[in-house]
Simulated scan of single mutants.
Amino acid sequence: MTDTLALLKQRRSVPPQFLAAPGPEGAQLDELLAIAARVPDHGKLVPWRLVVFEGAAREQAAEVVARVFRERNPQASDDQVEFERKRLLHAPVVVAVISRAREHVKIPLWEQELSAGAVCMTMLIGAYAMGYAGSWLTNWFAFDREVLAAFGLAEDERIAGFIHLGTPTAPITDRDRPVMAEIVTRYGA
């Protein structure tokens, strides 16, 4: 139990541009995805799914992002287009967590969406426990229907997050954390 608490106290997000190979792959990646799927899921609806971008598929996805960015921003410079193209190329593995929350007679959409968020966080914690680091991001293309369709999402599916995974290339630093007295209240006190 102490090891788990120590891990949770140390976990930090690492921006994708500071992640490099190696990243989780093969059986280790499969294990990480299985761990990420072990989240609270009221009604066992599995209101999420995963799309893995690795190897040449990252390049294909990056080209989709660059093309759509160019179409949406014809005035953009080549450097700006290249910046957008590289967003999915920094980390060796990127996993899109897809929310497929749907109306249900008993389970609210909000609970289903939170379950997808739990997948994202559990994947980050699992990656850190395996010796990797990561980042949970969305970016503009997570909300662009043309990009989402190219990535295989149905019209009623959304990106909960892109989880960028790899090995840190620089020391992991912490950020300022909330002052607990400012965010915690005790009911009835």
Rank of each mutant, 00 (worst) to 15 (best):
E59N: 10
L165S: 08
L89S: 13
T2Y: 04
A66P: 11
V46L: 03
D174I: 00
A189L: 07
P168V: 07
V39L: 01
F162V: 10
E54I: 11
R102P: 01
L7Q: 10
R145G: 00
D3Y: 01
A181H: 06
R87V: 05
R70D: 07
E155N: 09
E82P: 02
P22L: 06
I125R: 01
L8G: 12
Q10V: 00
I98T: 07
M121L: 10
L8I: 15
F83S: 13
A142V: 09
M123H: 01
A181Q: 15
V52F: 11
R87S: 12
P74Q: 09
C120L: 11
A91K: 05
Q10C: 03
W110I: 10
A133S: 15
A118K: 01
A56G: 03
T167E: 07
G131V: 05
A116T: 05
D144C: 04
Y187P: 00
A57F: 13
A91Y: 05
D156K: 08
P15S: 02
G23S: 10
L124D: 02
D30M: 01
C120I: 10
I163N: 09
Q60C: 02
Y128I: 00
V95C: 06
P40V: 05
V46F: 01
R67N: 11
M1K: 11
F83Y: 14
Q28N: 04
V97W: 08
T173S: 07
K44S: 07
L45I: 07
T169R: 12
V64Y: 10
A37C: 07
P40K: 05
L19S: 06
Q112S: 01
L124S: 02
V119H: 04
A116K: 03
H90R: 02
W140F: 13
P16H: 06
E71W: 00
M180Y: 14
G131Q: 09
G126P: 06
V94I: 14
P15A: 05
A154Y: 08
G43A: 02
A116G: 06
K86N: 15
P24W: 02
I159M: 05
L153S: 08
P178I: 07
L137F: 00
Q75H: 12
A116Y: 03
T185D: 13
W136Q: 08
T2N: 13
E84A: 09
V147Y: 06
F143A: 09
R70L: 03
P22R: 07
Y132K: 03
G126D: 04
D30Q: 14
N139R: 12
R85E: 12
E182D: 15
Q75N: 11
K44M: 12
A189P: 03
A142K: 09
D3C: 00
E157F: 06
L148Q: 14
T2D: 14
L148R: 15
F151K: 05
V51M: 02
L7V: 14
A189S: 12
L88R: 12
P74I: 06
Q10M: 08
P47S: 02
Q10L: 10
L50Q: 14
L7G: 06
R87D: 07
W136H: 08
I107R: 02
A118I: 01
P178L: 12
A154Q: 15
V46G: 00
D156M: 04
L5P: 03
R100S: 10
